[in-house]
Design a binder for these strands. Structure first.
Ligand SMILES: Nc1ncnc2c1ncn2[C@@H]1O[C@H](COP(=O)(O)OP(=O)(O)OP(=O)(O)O)[C@@H](O)[C@H]1O
Length: 830
DNA sequence: TCTTCAAACTTTTTT
DNA sequence: AGTTTGAAGA
């Protein structure tokens, strides 16, 4: 086979791809092909006979991992790629720990078991709130979120609770130290890890256990890391341990071990969670023999966009100068749009997107600084009927019903998970109230055991009345029964069984509202996810499933192929590229964010974020800002972002002066009616070019010097009470009256629900014909059936989840199981 | 024990 | 403005 995979690479890239010895760093600007180099390098290694089993590739997000995987599969085929470890630091650590956590001991000699669970932000916060209660501290003073991030910061610097507590110099820090200690203790009792633990425990495990270290040292002889500028201390330590196996550098066989890290200091945007680009800068002091390659050709953006990015980032002081040349044409000027408020901004974006034509929707991304900004944009896209998908925001796995079912699975998998137990002990309603739960919890804390352990011997404790005892025991036996059963079920069937046997599904069905219907559909989707996971090769299905669910932030894009505009934060956009980009909310106070305006290094990080944003664009870049924006129910006025003034005027076109004086159009209307008016207006005029009329002038804004802006901009972000509060309130009450008997859900939420419903219906309707008419073979309760795997049984009951049907069948050999009708695995016995 | 309504809080970014 | 939380009532 000729080296077609090397074709088209420039000299420096080629060098980086083919360099097959020792340590290599690739330092290069945005769009210079760093990720492409990594991918090609892996392919090249395989070509050279290196076993996929020996390769570890670390990406920054799960999305990036998936992307890299699928690119590799195209070159190398699935069979080879499945042996390569490609993933985020967290998922890789999760995988290592699932195998070897039992070899780890913490400073107090506490160990974790293989069936540990991973706590997300919410569950970690629950533990912290609990610790506050135990210490009798006020959660107004000790804000759980702040404490969580203090603890997290400490952990990422590899500082443990003991060290933290000893180093505490004031009362507040001392208390945090105490919370930290209890927090860690609770996690261990629950046999649980938080996100940070995944990293630091793996590091400590590799430090402690020579056997484990050697195992992974031997395995991962070729390591590649993308986005290295955003690694933190623990992650760096992990890479060092894996690469050197703790042997002195001189002892490492650099002819057979390689390490390649790539990054761009100007794109370091995660310092707030412990990432430090200095690790990349100082890399050579740890590895003096490392070779460095610079890539200076940008293959992504047209010259105008690249020049704007370069000019903006030049304002940073903490950086190393570098060159980046465009390989594309000049391109169109950057379109800068000044809107009156966030609603108009959103409609401008939606409308401009529409003008690019429906076939381009997939080429468009709208980026914003904070998630809250997405709402107005969503509303505009919905009003204009433009399909969109949102990355981040409210995630699938964060929905209540999904968290509930996951909590059941977690408790069944690891009965020491008291956070899960507390979540579902009274869901669905079992008349086990707060008071009872509190008692159980207190007993567990006094005896240093998990809450489920208390349930196991509930009659030993005299605190509970007879009725309560029965209810608790029923719940306990239900869970014990699930624990017994879990081996005998396919994952998706197990999930279904839980939903049926607990009565969770029934409770939702009885509620019979739009909302409950959507919940049921979501559960159906979750069952589908479980079913998909059944295909994965794994030794511990439930455990690995739970890990995946905890670490992968969203159900992976079913919508990926579909033609929709993408909405996401600037942070999530890292590493991606789109032909058309909208950067929205370019206002002082939003971007750069208010909270960073006083600190230089944080301001520089915001500027790097701007650099990342600009460089996502290939062909067209739109920048928008609003003169005022509704926040917390009030209008807030702000100046355009200083970053706009850092882009040379000759690269931009703007509507700046043409909109002035139109303010009264909005002055008398409430937010909602403003949206409505705009929607109607733009719908009517949708065939007329709107934005074009206002462009064509060069940017005429007075060139304000940065000093001026930063010195007085803070004072200019004043808050003005909204003009028509009176009307607002009236409208709201009359609306409530009208909807008295319905659920009152906000517009976006309602539309979201409907969209989801439609989606669910669509999925199901496309599934049915393919699987071959299960309508023709429906059964009744009491029918005797034969199953291809489980043999003969009798239909016990029939349940509908979403649009699919499940039979609960009592099998002669295997007992009761849930069988999905869609698979057609049952045959009627006459 | 569960429901209802008013008050308080929210907005930085994510694995 | 929307969402979550807490206290009082059923
Ligand atoms: N030699 C090349 N010839 C043509 N296109 C290239 C070449 N190298 C890279 N590209 C293209 O340039 C784009 C950017 O590449 P890539 O995403 O690898 O850059 P990057 O340096 O990782 O960017 P970022 O720093 O923003 O993550 C991709 O579309 C890629 O296919």
């Amino acid at each position: 086979m000729t080296n077609s995979l090397l074709e088209g690479l420039n000299n420096e890239q080629l060098q980086a791809v083919t360099d097959a010895q020792g340590i290599l760093t690739v330092l290069a600007g945005a769009g210079s092909g760093k990720t492409k180099v990594l991918t090609s390098r892996i392919a090249q290694m395989i070509e050279n006979g290196i076993s996929p089993y020996n390769i570890l590739a670390v990406t920054f997000t799960n999305k990036a991992a998936k992307e890299m995987r699928s690119r590799l599969e195209k070159i190398l085929g699935e069979e080879i790629v499945k042996h390569i470890w490609v993933g985020t630091f967290h998922s890789i650590c999760g995988r290592i720990l699932r195998q070897d956590i039992e070899k780890y001991k913490n400073e107090e000699g506490i160990k974790w078991e293989k069936n540990f669970v991973i706590y997300d932000e919410d569950e970690s916060l629950a533990i912290i709130k609990n610790a506050l209660k135990i210490l009798d501290l006020d959660d107004k003073v000790y804000k759980p979120k702040t404490i969580k991030s203090e603890i997290s910061n400490a952990k990422n610097k590899l500082i443990n609770a003991y060290t933290f507590a000893t180093k505490a110099r004031d009362y507040y820090k001392d208390k945090i130290g105490q919370i930290f200690t209890i927090y860690e203790k609770s996690l261990s009792i629950n046999n649980a890890l938080d996100f940070d633990d995944l990293l630091i425990m793996t590091v400590k495990l590799l430090e402690q256990s020579a056997e484990t270290r050697e195992k992974y040292y031997q395995k991962f002889s070729h390591i590649l890391v993308d986005e290295f500028q955003d690694t933190n201390k623990a992650q760096y330590q992990l890479i060092k341990l894996l690469f050197t196996g703790n042997y002195p550098l001189e002892a490492i066989d650099l002819d057979n071990r390689t390490l390649c890290v790539v990054g761009d200091i100007d794109q370091s945007i995660y310092s707030w969670r412990g990432a430090d680009y200095k690790i990349l800068l100082n890399f050579r002091s740890d590895f003096p023999m490392a070779k460095t390659i610079k890539l200076e050709k940008n293959y992504r953006s047209v010259a105008t966009i690249l020049e704007a990015a370069n000019k903006v980032i030049e304002n940073n002081f903490e950086r190393v100068e570098k060159n980046l040349y465009s390989t594309k044409g000049q391109g169109r000027k950057i379109q800068c749009y000044e809107a009156q408020d966030q609603a108009e901004e959103a409609f401008y974006i939606a409308n401009t997107a529409k003008k690019y034509g429906a076939e381009h929707y997939q080429n468009i991304a709208v980026l914003y600084r904070t998630n809250a900004q997405s709402r107005a944009i969503e509303e505009a896209f919905m009003a204009l009927g433009i399909p969109y998908r949102m990355i981040g925001g409210l995630k699938f796995y964060e929905r209540k019903e999904i968290k509930d079912i996951i909590a059941y699975l977690r408790l069944i998998y690891n009965r020491n998970d008291s956070v899960a137990l507390k979540r579902i002990i009274n869901v669905p309603k079992r008349a086990i109230g707060q008071a009872t739960v509190k008692k159980i919890e207190e007993i567990s804390q006094e005896n240093n055991i998990s809450m489920f352990d208390v349930l196991l011997e509930i009659r030993k404790y005299s605190e509970f009345s007879g009725v309560t005892l029965t209810k608790i025991e029923t719940f306990r036996d239900l869970i014990l029964d699930f624990i017994d059963k879990k081996e005998h079920f396919l994952l998706s069937e197990f999930v279904t069984t839980i939903l049926m046997d607990t009565g969770y599904l029934k409770e939702l069905e009885d509620e019979d509202s739009i909302e409950s219907q959507v919940r049921i559909d979501n559960l159906q989707e979750f069952i589908n996810v479980a079913r998909e996971f059944e295909e994965t090769e794994t030794e511990d299905e439930l455990g690995d499933f739970l890990s995946q669910v905890a670490l992968v932030s969203d159900v992976d894009e079913i919508t990926e192929g579909s033609n929709a505009v993408t909405l996401m934060t600037l942070h999530s956009a890292k590493g991606l590229e789109y032909p058309i980009i909208f950067l929205s909310g370019l206002e002082e106070g939003i971007f750069p964010h208010q909270r960073v305006q006083n600190s230089n290094s944080e301001l520089e990080e915001e500027r790097r974020l701007m650099y990342v944003g600009i460089t996502r664009a290939q062909e067209h870049l739109h920048i928008t800002y609003a003169k005022r924006r509704q926040m917390w129910g009030e209008y807030r006025y702000s100046e355009p972002s200083r970053f706009i003034f850092e882009i040379p005027q000759n690269l931009m076109e703007t509507n700046f002066s043409s909109k002035i004086g139109k303010e009264e159009h909005f002055a008398n209307s409430t937010f909602k009616t403003a949206v409505k008016n705009l929607g109607e207006k733009y719908n009517i005029e949708k065939d007329k070019p709107i934005a074009n009329t206002s462009f064509g002038k060069n940017f005429v804004a007075p060139s304000i010097k940065e000093k001026q802006i930063s010195s007085n901009s803070f004072g200019k972000n004043f808050v003005v009470p909204s003009t028509k509060k009176q009307i607002d309130k009236e409208e709201k009450t009359s609306f409530k009256k009208k909807e008295e008997f319905k659920n009152v859900i906000s517009g976006v939420e309602q539309a979201r629900l409907m969209a989801q419903k439609l989606k669910a219906q669509k999925t199901n309707s496309t599934c049915t014909p393919i699987k071959g008419g299960f309508h023709s073979t429906s059964f009744g309760v009491g029918d005797r059936v034969n199953h291809e795997k489980y043999g003969i049984g009798k239909i016990e009951s029939i349940v509908n989840i979403g649009n699919s049907t499940l039979y609960k069948v009592e099998f002669e050999k295997y007992g009761i199981k849930a069988i999905d009708a869609e698979f057609n695995r049952l045959k009627l016995i006459q």
